[in-house]
């Protein structure tokens, strides 16, 4: 249940592009054709699925306050979290290079389709953003971190696919000349973001903890609600009948 909640939240509610504007640069630059957009989107999912869990392990066992306690008692006092930017970006850059080498060796076909996009990914803010959000939202287990990486990647993939499809069609429309290209893409993305905001009702939004509390209270209140409604109506009926009785008595 926790996994499912995180999955849908990362894809729709906290969508990388529409809610937090991450990876906008490549989103705008590589969305002119659907085929290239699919290539880049797939590469992003792939890299995020690897780097988010890896960075989670780094954060848990090296960077957090007291994370080094597995080395011995005297190391428990260190807090290396100020190093997290440099560690995360180094992990991402090396993983991207490694993935590039591996894919080139074992699957030349995939390499040719992703080829140009892989190096670009190292500087895609969605990837680093994924790791930083993973850290700031205090995701608890490795499984959840993997889930978060994959689902944020899928969210980004959906966004770039949608805008690429729209841009392919909009070429045939009569857009005001100064808005052509970049301008209209911005405005369309804004409108799409408004659309995606409506998913916010699926969960109550806001911080992770607040969501959990609120959903929990909603669940309990739903369970409790039915009997209380009946009780209330009974009470209302009671009070009405009592009122009527009183009125009758007065008469």
């Amino acid at each position: 249940m926790e996994h499912l909640e995180l999955f849908f939240k990362a894809i729709f509610i906290d969508n990388m592009v529409f809610a937090t504007f991450l990876g906008m640069c490549s989103y705008l630059a590589v969305s002119k054709k659907v085929s290239t957009a699919v290539g880049l989107g797939a590469a992003v999912i792939f890299v995020m699925a690897i780097t988010v869990p890896l960075n989670w392990l780094l954060d848990k066992y090296i960077l957090q306050e007291g994370a080094l306690s597995w080395l011995g008692e005297e190391y428990a006092v260190y807090d290396l979290s100020f190093l997290s930017f440099i560690m995360f970006i180094a992990t991402i850059a090396t993983m991207v290079q490694l993935v590039e080498i591996i894919v080139e060796k074992f699957s030349p076909a995939l390499y040719n389709s992703l080829g140009i996009f892989l190096p670009l990914i190292a500087v895609n803010c969605a990837i680093l953003g994924g790791s930083l959000f993973m850290q700031s939202r205090e995701i608890q287990t490795l499984g959840l971190a993997f889930n978060y990486g994959v689902s944020s990647g899928i969210g980004w993939f959906l966004a770039i696919l949608a805008i690429a499809a729209i841009r392919e069609k909009i070429r045939y429309s009569n857009v005001p000349a100064p808005l052509r290209g970049l301008g209209i893409t911005f405005i369309i993305t804004g409108l799409m973001a408004i659309g995606f905001m409506s998913f916010g009702g699926m969960l109550t939004g806001g911080d992770e903890e607040v969501v959990k509390e609120e959903t929990a209270s909603i669940e309990t209140s739903v369970k409790v609600n039915e009997p209380t409604l009946e009780e209330e109506t009974i009470k209302v009926i009671d009070s009405v009948s009592v009122d009527e009785l009183e009125i009758k008595e007065e008469e």
Partner: peptide, 11 residues
Amino acid sequence: LLAPMALITVG
């Protein structure tokens, strides 16, 4: 103040 209006403002 919401996210989408930033995009439209830049547009």
